[in-house]
């Protein structure tokens, strides 16, 4: 009987994902470009005076980051579903939920993290006060982590549906409402100089909840889609 090692399950899938994503630089650039375009839409759609932009800065950056991360999240399993690797993952002795975590982590490193690191740039362009940048990055870090977990459930549920992309957005966005509220509110308070620790703590709580519980739901959703 083969020995069952959790470390191997995680590292095997992580290595495969990172080499595969590394091969196509598009998987890193596309979410970033989408993020930049959506951020640029906001000033174009109102009068771009600095005071006006400052009021909508945190919500614009957050909504753009949420949509960009979701765009990248949507095809998390589609590639593996189409070439049959998802069946292999489901049938192997290695726990499926651990392989899902590895896949999520790889995708987050490639599409979520760059968003977080570049969000101050977008905030600067929308004239957000510099004191809010660190809180923006911390809240976006937590927000993109919980989106990557909840989004994985949506991606697994809609992987076998033909135009699953739109349905994926309808399923995942309502679940992201708490993260969006807390994130934008924390950034707003921080950019005014107030202390946003309370909101960030709640964001940490939601992030931990979704990161730890959702892989099991994603594994179950994968088995349903493979039926």
């Amino acid at each position: 009987m083969n020995e069952l090692s959790y470390r191997r399950a995680f590292s095997l899938q992580l290595r495969k994902e990172l080499t595969q994503l590394g091969r196509r630089y598009g998987s890193v650039l596309t979410p970033l470009l989408f993020f930049a375009v959506v951020v640029a839409l906001f000033p174009l759609s109102t009068d771009p005076s600095p005071q006006r932009l400052a009021t909508i800065a945190s919500s614009a950056v957050w909504v753009a980051a949420l949509l960009a991360a979701m765009l990248a999240q949507q095809t998390l399993f589609r590639g593996d579903f189409e070439d049959g690797s998802l069946q292999l993952m489901a049938l192997s002795a290695l726990p499926l939920w651990l392989q899902v975590i590895a896949k999520q982590m790889a995708h987050w490193l490639v599409s979520g993290l760059p968003l977080v690191l570049l969000s101050p740039l977008a905030a600067y362009s929308l004239n957000m006060a510099p004191q809010g940048y660190t809180t923006l990055m911390v809240s976006l870090l937590l927000g993109s982590l919980s989106l990557s977990s909840l989004g994985a459930i949506g991606a697994a549920l809609t992987v076998s549906i033909r135009q699953g992309g739109l349905l994926f957005a309808v399923l995942v966005l309502p679940l992201m409402v708490p993260v969006l509220i807390l994130g934008t509110q924390a950034t707003e308070l921080a950019s005014k100089g107030d202390n946003a620790a309370g909101l960030l703590n709640m964001l940490v709580a939601i992030c931990l909840l979704s990161v730890t519980l959702s892989p099991f739901a994603t594994a179950a959703a994968i088995r349903v889609s493979l039926d």
Binding site: L157, P174, L175, V177, M202, A221, S225
Partner: peptide, 26 residues
């Protein structure tokens, strides 16, 4: 298959409904 997929979404949703409710009140 549709039943089982909707079941997962309903269960995930019911965990999130109170969180959504309180964050909206907040």
């Amino acid at each position: 298959q549709g039943d089982r997929a909707a079941a997962i979404l309903a269960i995930v949703g019911v965990v999130n409904v109170p969180i959504i409710h309180y964050s909206v009140n907040w």
